[in-house]
Amino acid sequence: MTFALLLVAFGITLALTAVLRGYALHHRLLDVPGQRSSHRQVTPRGGGLAIVLVTFLGTAYLAVSHTVAPDVWAVLGPAFLVAWVGWRDDHSHVSARYRFSVHGACSALMVFLLWPLELSLVGFTLPGMMLAVLLTLWLAWSINLFNFMDGINGIASIEAASVLGNMALLMFLSGQPVHVWFFFALVAACSLGFLVWNFPRARIFMGDVGSGFLGSLIGGLSILALGQAEVYFWALLILYGVFVADSTVTLIRRALHGEKVYLAHRSHAYQHTAQRLGSHTPVTLAVLAINLLWLLPWAWLVVSGLFSGFLALLMAYAPIVALVWRLGAGRRSQIAS
């Protein structure tokens, strides 16, 4: 039954994305390639709304059938607000100050709704107020880094599907009941439904409505997982490693160069690599390979209790950080002028 529900979610998202593509073309919601774009063709945007809507409908059904943890709504509620701002931005420009204010408020609300929480770092339990601030900043960063990384065909959908799908798998294998892990699998299935329209050729973009929603969901689900057991929090952060490393290194490097980090750019490692190769496909598939072959085993070691979560995070991230640095993440000389 659970597998059938995932297939239904996949199919509805696939069909709804086609409807949204027609809507975007009719209302001229189009991304026009520019100097800071990694695409060459005018492409409709806003298809990520299909993920948002099917996630809501699927969760409502799961709630009726008691197959979803009630705390999921504490993540979904603020995530829907983030998606709403993204949908507005896809239609007409919304100021960065307004977007960031909403992102910050939604992040704080999510932490408040999921409180109380505890997290240990190298044997030291973080004080409550410090932890609340750090988690709020983490959520706000997750929303924006997902948007930053949604720049080439399929990369955001594959990241969401692999991170959340792998997390569902780890929870299932560790004996968690279906109402704990099934929501992760649901969003993964929706992401795969959209992926058909976005990879290897992009016939519609996810838009801010989709990227903001998925970024807030992944960040929020990491905190929801923390409420289950600390190992799941570290595991999800490990699985999220490619996006976190590329965005964070890019932000730090651009800030050190004195650039306005909130402005659009084309200086992520994945963008440089796609430009060098002349294709998006190998880069997106490389992200999937890293997620499955490198990050998933590390996350499994943590969930199995064979490795400390924070230490495993450092070990898993180290070569990825070195890689994105080597590939030019945030390097000014490679930014399109």
Rank of each mutant, 00 (worst) to 15 (best):
D208Y: 07
G227T: 05
R253K: 12
L113R: 13
A18T: 02
L186W: 11
Y61K: 12
F100E: 10
F80K: 08
H179F: 14
R40W: 13
L169M: 10
L113T: 00
I252Q: 09
A312K: 10
C190M: 10
W84M: 11
V75P: 01
A322C: 09
P200W: 13
D208H: 08
L314Q: 11
T250D: 04
L114M: 04
G154D: 03
S92R: 15
A189S: 06
A105Y: 09
G151D: 08
I238V: 09
T55F: 14
H26M: 09
H257C: 12
V302H: 08
F199S: 03
I238N: 04
G154S: 01
G330T: 02
K260T: 05
L277Y: 10
S37T: 07
G219L: 06
S95D: 10
L119I: 05
Y98V: 11
L295C: 05
L131S: 01
M171N: 01
I12N: 04
L20I: 02
G210Y: 12
L117N: 02
L296D: 01
F213P: 00
G128H: 14
I158R: 11
L20F: 12
L114C: 02
I143N: 08
A329L: 09
R332M: 12
S174T: 10
A63R: 14
F124Q: 14
V178M: 11
S304Q: 15
L131Q: 03
L173R: 13
S267I: 08
L221R: 11
T17Y: 10
F307T: 09
Q334C: 07
S222P: 01
N198Q: 06
T2R: 14
M110V: 02
G58A: 04
L145H: 06
H26R: 15
A312R: 09
A168G: 08
F56K: 08
D150A: 03
L195G: 01
V187T: 05
L239E: 06
I204R: 14
L14W: 15
S120G: 10
L217P: 00
D208I: 03
A185G: 02
L301M: 14
H265N: 06
M171Y: 09
D246E: 06
V244D: 07
T273H: 13
F199I: 01
L164N: 03
G330A: 03
A168Q: 04
A289Y: 10
T273F: 15
A79W: 08
M315I: 12
M110A: 05
V42G: 03
L145W: 12
T284V: 02
Q35Y: 11
T248Y: 12
T13L: 07
L221G: 02
L126T: 06
A9D: 11
P70V: 07
L81E: 05
Q271L: 07
L296S: 04
F310Q: 08
R332D: 06
L119S: 03
E259Q: 14
N153I: 07
L57T: 05
L306K: 15
